Simulated scan of single mutants.
Amino acid sequence: MKRVVRHLHRLATGLALAAGVGLAGAQSAAPAATPAPASYNVGATATGVPFTFLDVKTNSIQGMMVDTVTAVGKAGGFGVNVQQTVFSALIPSLTARKVDIISAAMLKTPARQEVVDFSDPVYSYGEGLIVKDSDTRPYVSLDELKGEVVGAQVGTVFLDMLNKKGIFKEVRSYDSVADMTRDLSLGRIKAGLGDQPVIAYQLRQAAFNGVKLVQSYKSVNVGDVCLVVRKGDTQTLERLNKAIAKVKADGTLAAIVGKWGI
């Protein structure tokens, strides 16, 4: 009887040890958390003054959103490497992992949210209506341009707006606002839509000739400008949001917006 008890005791002890080894093995096999990157590649455009633009003197991308992502990186303890990308290629570059973050005048929309994730807002604005400087009509809505030829930049929500209206003779797309305003000044289109603060800034800088913003026009597509990351990249998104909260709280973001006059 004693031999049976000793045998059962040894068996129980062996099972307990085996279970302990199995648990330790499982624990050691658990994947370690991926460390946060020390720096990120950031996509920005060369044609979105004052948000992002190419400074020909330094051959680098500058602007409000460049300053913003740089300040966010400093507040979050990571570096940023800003790279020039055309606007229509920003999201494809992000999803293809050529860049990790988009920092540009890109409005948050439901359609874009299906493909990418947006940070907390850093700025908000709507569309501006541009016409020839000789056009004195006080436009209030796009309905007043029914039957006309109009235009907007490729990849923007404003081009989608015009196409969805379905009331125009033709909707033309342009690679840049500069191309659109050139056609507008030549009378090839009746009006164009673009980022209101971008156009206003460039008009103040005398970058466009023969066109003007319609002051009476009421924006209908007001949205938030955010930093953009790949869908499901919660690690980067959380780092960005924490850093955005810091630069908002300490006044850094407000100073950047003021610097660029928007």
Results as ranks from 00 to 15, higher is better:
78 F>T: 00
18 A>K: 00
226 C>Y: 01
209 N>L: 07
70 T>A: 09
33 A>K: 05
39 S>K: 05
132 K>F: 00
57 K>Y: 05
21 V>W: 00
88 S>W: 07
260 W>P: 03
127 E>K: 06
125 Y>N: 02
225 V>W: 02
252 T>P: 11
49 V>H: 06
239 R>Q: 09
136 T>G: 12
40 Y>D: 05
117 D>M: 09
130 I>T: 15
235 Q>A: 15
121 P>S: 11
143 D>M: 13
123 Y>N: 07
13 T>C: 13
198 V>M: 13
6 R>M: 12
177 V>Q: 09
101 I>Y: 07
210 G>C: 07
63 G>L: 01
257 V>W: 14
184 L>A: 10
205 Q>E: 10
58 T>H: 10
90 L>V: 06
172 R>C: 04
145 L>I: 05
236 T>W: 13
258 G>P: 01
133 D>R: 00
2 K>H: 11
53 F>Y: 15
143 D>T: 11
94 L>H: 06
44 A>L: 12
139 Y>R: 07
182 R>F: 06
199 I>K: 10
9 H>N: 12
20 G>Q: 00
196 Q>N: 09
104 A>W: 11
127 E>C: 04
88 S>Y: 08
8 L>E: 01
19 A>H: 00
225 V>H: 01
208 F>K: 13
235 Q>D: 14
74 K>P: 03
77 G>L: 01
150 V>A: 04
261 G>C: 02
249 A>I: 13
137 R>C: 01
117 D>R: 08
126 G>Y: 04
142 L>N: 09
249 A>C: 12
171 V>C: 12
99 V>L: 11
233 D>M: 03
91 I>W: 08
126 G>F: 03
118 F>G: 06
115 V>F: 00
176 S>W: 12
160 D>E: 12
105 A>C: 10
196 Q>Y: 13
114 E>P: 09
201 Y>T: 05
170 E>Q: 14
24 A>T: 07
244 I>E: 00
146 K>I: 00
35 P>V: 10
254 A>I: 02
249 A>N: 14
203 L>C: 05
57 K>G: 15
82 V>F: 08
128 G>T: 11
231 K>N: 12
35 P>C: 07
83 Q>D: 01
259 K>A: 08
224 D>W: 12
104 A>E: 13
13 T>M: 10
250 D>F: 03
63 G>T: 00
182 R>D: 03
230 R>H: 08
128 G>L: 08
126 G>L: 03
258 G>D: 06
238 E>I: 04
41 N>Y: 14
220 V>M: 10
99 V>N: 09
150 V>K: 06
224 D>I: 15
256 I>M: 09
82 V>D: 04
80 V>L: 08
179 D>I: 02
172 R>G: 05
232 G>W: 07
245 A>V: 00
129 L>F: 01
251 G>R: 03
125 Y>R: 03
83 Q>R: 07
160 D>A: 11
162 L>P: 15
2 K>D: 10
205 Q>R: 14
34 T>E: 13
153 Q>W: 02
153 Q>S: 08
23 L>P: 01
88 S>A: 14
244 I>S: 04
166 G>K: 12
11 L>R: 02
75 A>T: 04
61 I>L: 09
